[in-house]
Design a protein around this nucleic acid. Structure first.
Lengths: 337, 337
DNA sequence: TTGAAAGCGTTACCAG
DNA sequence: CTGGTAACGCTTTCAA
């Protein structure tokens, strides 16, 4: 192609405007001391050439790129879409650019981090839970501030934002009990998901505090199909009437299995509670009782950590917790007054 | 913070390894001529210092950043989430980094493009439809290859990928007619959406070809709530029994309104067809007849255009079309044999 | 195979 | 307020 030259440089502009290259730089620097006349000449030449300062040399000088990487694991879940959109919008409003990094598992995380490092990203926000303390420590070697969502593990360079999963589990247990539930079950996410585990822990604790036994647990995978299959497996063994699900997608799948395949009614025969409050949860066909994870709060806290780490540098033990707000809807019966 | 120095440079590595800086560069350049011994020393020193070449100076030299910007308008629709994830994955596989740019309207597009230019992005993929020929021409001034999805407008620097919306509209009309539809309606997206307009055009053409009259049209906004409201407005005026919707979200909202609010049955009383084949369309509660927009094909074509423009430079009139595959499900009756 | 040196486009500093 | 110069970290000549 070679369309002449793709980009004009400040030197080109300086030549055309009849000033020094430094003058051009100053004309584009807010608050620099330039005479109105010089600025006018520079801007005219810049417009003629389609010039805008490149940010690349600046990155080279400062080692700050303005880039923040956001690592996501799977966008099929509308909740992640909503969170990602918020991150992207707020990061841009704060003057950053968003580097989107899709990662299958934390297996490939090391390779990815090498690349991000070579781009001098200022920080990394990970939707992927950083699983173990070892991984968190290993990540510190990269010396890039990392904020991990849905974990409470931290290290020098890793901070985290966590939802109050345990608290929510307890609330679910109490509500289902108050509304007349007797046979409790938990449809879990992937076995290794800390969020799913914490929700179950809270659910267990809540039931125990009420003098009730262990809930039955079916392992799933955070998807609609997984929820449907899990519900089928659950009822194939024995019925349940109070089901807490690891997330909304699982709950919606379970609801469809319960109604369309098993022919039971919700909430009369079976009550269901989800987690996330994705848009579909509010749809007329489901009207799912769930928890709002406060995506706004999650994003705000995460970005506040990014800012804080950028300013004060690494420090161990930064954790923020966002509350999960209970949203009772029609998939659970009304409690007695 | 200042943790000593954040990044080691090739000069630091050279000093530690007792070689020249050029040697370090070569050791990291595949196919460069370095002796095994030198490479060994360099790598040892690099590991000790945690060194990896910065990509920034390279960008400065070549004006190619490896960055491809993806502009998205709203991630609430799961279809866009799925498409975005594919884009991100494939772009990374092709060795690019993905810059995610959320944009409310094309109002702010100019500002955004200035920024992207200063980052020397190699190309821009826009999920936002580039509306008019004027906008497309204006975009050419930025001299960055742009691929626009869901438009057929092009210019020197703007290529586009379009779904066969008209063809799908015709198929919808034919299917609804064959299955016994008599009172046709179209629930549109935003008035200015070219995709929605094209789907309607095809629907109209299909009905006309069958000797049928104009469908009734209700303007909406591509959302579930919009679909619900649009269906309510439609039936408040007069009933319909064959409804084609601008996308799946609208269709799902309409289905819920028709069943839960109006007390009608689907498909016995009313048939509904959507567009996109988002995951929820296949859920048991909806089982929505729809069109698969072939997100895979969309992404492949778009990235092929990116590659092509990167290699051969600007050229007018690059358009690719991806087929929409019809997926009959339970929200329409079975056609007579 | 190796080292020295130029150059990419900025910003920041220093004299004038 | 202005122009010259150093510096950032790399790749790429050019000589040796």
């Amino acid at each position: 192609m070679t369309p002449g030259k793709r980009y004009a440089s400040s030197t080109d502009v300086a030549r055309l405007a009849g000033v020094s290259q430094s003058a051009v730089s100053r004309a584009f620097t807010p608050g620099a001391s330039v005479s109105a006349e010089t600025r006018r000449k520079v801007m005219a030449a810049a417009d003629a050439l389609g010039f805008r300062p490149s940010i690349i040399p600046q990155i080279m000088l400062t080692n700050r790129s303005g880039l923040v990487a956001v690592i996501v694991g799977g966008l099929r879940n509308a909740f992640y879409g909503a969170v990602l959109e918020r991150f992207a919008t707020r990061l841009r409003d704060a003057g950053h650019q968003v580097l989107l990094v899709p990662v299958e598992s934390d297996y490939s995380l090391d390779t990815v981090l090498e690349e991000l490092r070579s781009y001098r990203v200022d920080a990394i926000v990970s939707g992927l839970a950083v699983l173990s303390q070892e991984v968190a420590d290993a990540l510190s070697a990269f010396r890039i501030p990392i904020v991990s969502c849905n974990t409470s593990v931290t290290s020098d360079w890793v901070a985290s934002v966590d939802s109050d999963n345990r608290g929510a589990g307890r609330v679910a247990a109490e509500w289902l009990r108050r509304c007349g539930g007797t046979r409790f079950a938990f449809l879990a996410g992937p076995e290794e998901s800390p969020a799913s585990r914490d929700r179950l822990d809270g659910f267990r604790a809540g039931l125990a505090a009420l003098g009730l036994g262990e809930p039955r647990v079916v392992i799933g995978d955070y998807s609609y199909d997984g929820g449907r299959a899990a519900a089928a497996r659950l009822f194939a063994e024995a019925p349940a009437d109070a089901i807490f699900c690891a997330n909304d997608l699982v709950a919606l799948g379970a609801m469809d299995a319960i109604r369309k395949r098993l022919g039971l009614r919700i909430p009369e025969d079976v009550m269901v509670i989800g987690y996330d409050d994705i848009p579909s949860a509010a749809w007329d066909s489901y009207d799912l009782t769930t928890f709002d994870q406060d995506p706004e709060g999650l994003v705000v806290q995460a970005l506040d950590l990014v800012r804080e780490m950028g300013e004060s540098g690494p420090a161990r033990g930064r954790v923020r917790v966002v509350e999960a707000r209970f949203i009772p809807r029609g998939s659970t019966r009304n409690p007695p007054p």
